[in-house]
Design a protein around this nucleic acid. Structure first.
Lengths: 227, 227
DNA sequence: AATCAGATTTAGGCGACCCTAATTCTGATT
DNA sequence: AATCAGAATTAGGGTCGCCTAAATCTGATT
């Protein structure tokens, strides 16, 4: 008999798949403890679930080594990512949510919304390709165009760039960035930088702004046409 | 210790409370089999859950007699009714759903949406007091203004009334009504009626329309200023 | 008052998920 | 090669919510 097809995935399963997807983005398989940490579960619980899911053909588990999604699992994970990002986009665009407040809401809705509603929201949004944080939105078929950007921390002094993506889900950081005009689409110039991973100053809009290396590392930019 | 307060209710529990609320509207306590039928569960399962919920103070269960909500239980049920009806209204108003298609979607979303999002949707809608079917929407505090309407089946021949509420959740019936202009707000005139609960003819907008007694009984109308 | 159908409850189980405690493995260190 | 810390797994439990099958109750009938 074929593996899981119609027997709709559980909320928990959807969370596992999405977590494993995110953890595997770096190329290395996800560890069970790592998954446990992300989902706020005990590692032993993850081992059990992982065993079940690999029996269902959603992921590949090499004991003591790590977990990777199968093609079927990845498709399900990307479906959740699409739902999450469409929801975030919709809530920000039409229901006055701020970009630091949408995550939690989307996290619950992504399990409850029908495919049809997601597509209606996508249509209302004009089928966007990125969400409010600049994260790419997978297409309904699971394809996703992921552009490569330069962390602001690596942009040379004097160069003008466009901020494209803010890679964090932490609400306090997102709020901080928004307050200082550091949102996708903003034009930014690096005005100075201390050596050895030290802080830098940037100009976004009108005012100058001091920025630590860690934060600058999660601000992804596209550089001008040159080079 | 006080009964349940913060320990958020389960999806199942929310469904039970809402079902019992609807079944108790007539004034008589809900039977377990009745609940089982509505929720598509085995009666034995309902007995078990009902016992747990009455221990939690959400409802009152007299074995072999019936189930009624406590004040706490009713509040929780009305909260779900509000969520459901706000969701239906929002989906119809902003996302192109038809009134026969919203129920299923709202049924799942009502468990996942935050109070904050519901209130944002309500605001976007202009804080409506009725949903697309004309059903009253409870206020956030649980209060609800329920007007008394006359079933179209009891409106005298020749009288002009306004259709206010369509009391069914069955998609095929809703579609039928919509196709014939029988939606809340429509002006309707009873043009003839057969005796002994027989069919009647009504005029809604331009054309004459034959209508059986059963369907006419779920179309609720407000009668003119006279009497 | 005996009987009966149907509603209701009790008994016993099962699957999905989670937990803690105890054990085992792995890779690095000495 | 022995040791060790930390990661990962196994063992054993618990809860929630559902099910089927087997009592039991209730109100109406005769």
């Amino acid at each position: 008999m074929a593996p899981s097809s119609s027997p709709t995935l559980t909320r928990s399963v959807e969370d596992y798949l999405k977590a494993i997807y995110h953890l595997s983005l770096g190329g290395t398989p996800a560890g069970t403890t790592e998954i446990a940490h992300l989902l706020e579960l005990a590692p032993a619980s993850v081992t059990g679930m992982v065993k079940r899911l690999s029996e269902q053909g959603l992921l590949e588990h090499v004991p003591y080594k790590g977990v990777e999604l199968t093609a079927v699992g990845r498709r399900a994970a990307l479906r959740m990512v699409r739902r999450h990002r469409i929801l975030e986009s919709y809530l920000v665009a039409f229901l006055d949510y701020t970009w630091d407040a949408v995550h939690e809401e989307a996290e619950r809705l992504e399990h409850a919304v029908s495919d049809g509603l997601i597509e209606r929201m996508a249509t209302a949004l004009g089928n966007p390709s990125v969400d409010p944080h600049g994260d790419p939105i997978p297409a309904p078929d699971g394809s996703m165009v992921e552009l490569v950007y330069t962390p602001l921390s690596e942009v040379p002094v004097g160069e003008a760039v466009e901020l494209r993506r803010v890679e964090t889900g932490q609400a306090d950081r997102l709020r901080y960035f928004a307050e200082h005009g550091l949102v996708p689409g903003a034009a930014v110039v690096v005005t100075s930088r201390q050596p050895f991973g030290g802080p830098m100053t940037v100009r976004a809009g009108t005012h100058e702004q001091l920025l630590g290396a860690e934060l600058a590392g999660i601000l992804l930019c596209s550089r001008g046409e040159a080079q």
